[in-house]
Amino acid sequence: MRYLYFPVLFALALLLQSSAVPAILPEWFVEGFDLPLIIAVHIAISRGKIPGMMAGAVIGYLQDALSGGVLGINGVSKIVAGYMGGYLRTKFFVGSLAHRTAIVAGTVFITLFGKVGVLALFDQPHPPLMSAQFLWGFVGNTLFALFTHALLDRFESYLGIRAEEELSLGD
């Protein structure tokens, strides 16, 4: 089960983001909803830096390939998300909602900031930092990541894969 879990989770996140979410939700909402980022943040917070970075790399590169953009933009930003999520979870107490909010918000902000930075570094078009798109990206993804993290946490406990993963991959 644990070996299938991540590929299925990644595939679902990418398919939902590319096919279902834009068909159901309004455009402005979709701009603040980066499901691959949310999954990368969840794995980083629940498993640590290395699984977070690996998950971020896989899902980020797949996202780049599917979006038709420059390969690596989302890859590198989600690798950073994986590292930051794993780093911040060692500095705060994940069990507390306030601390978890700080971890998720910090990780999402640094990821989006990093993505804008990489796009700017390579002279690629990007939303300005003080734009509604960036701010909603930060707020929306933070809220959805908190919700998804709680949901996946329960689901993984139900499947009995959390304990195994934490034993084998924890910091």
Partner: peptide, 30 residues
């Protein structure tokens, strides 16, 4: 962990840089 981060980030930046300098179309991966 830090070394892995540096390796992954530098590799990604090189991949991005190469694509922007030599836009050869779609990669086999894509």
């Amino acid at each position: 962990e830090g070394l892995l981060l540096v390796i992954l980030v530098i590799s990604s930046l090189l991949i991005i840089s190469r694509q922007i300098q030599h836009p050869t179309g779609v990669s086999y991966f894509q």
